[in-house]
Amino acid sequence: MIIYGTALLAVCHLLGIFIGDLLGKIIGVQTNVGGVGIAMMLLIFARMFMEPRGLMPKPTEAGVTFWAALYIPVVVAMAAQQNVVAALRGGHVAILAAFGAVVSCACIIALINRMEPKSDVDPFADDTEMPEAAAVDIKPTA
């Protein structure tokens, strides 16, 4: 049943947000601490537990992967409701501070990722689950 997958996803989501809120209360910040990340880990654990026991038939899986595939459309909708006007009106302080932060972080990301040990193995080589996700590289064949 497809709803089992979606319900599992929903339960993981709610539990994760709940734990994140509790963590926030314990640390004393008025916000959720990593709730979505915790929910993701719960879902990973649930799958690791259920799959070998045959509790994850294809329809159940589809109840989750449908939502994973809806991710980019949701992000497009999210982009469409950003306060772009205010961001552009924030003036040069906002733009320069953001630019400075982005550029310095980009350099650190590049530095750390260059230290990653090179491997010839494609980490996504046998990743056939989401065929539409495959990167399309258009290169001249010559």
Partner: peptide
């Protein structure tokens, strides 16, 4: 409706769902 579709609830729901593609050993 864009507000609902791109709001925090749907965004987080879809992000959590992508965890299905995470390989635990890679993470």
């Amino acid at each position: 409706g864009i507000g609902l579709m791109g709001g925090a609830m749907m965004r987080d729901f879809a992000i959590v769902a992508t965890a299905f593609e995470v390989r635990p050993d890679e993470a």
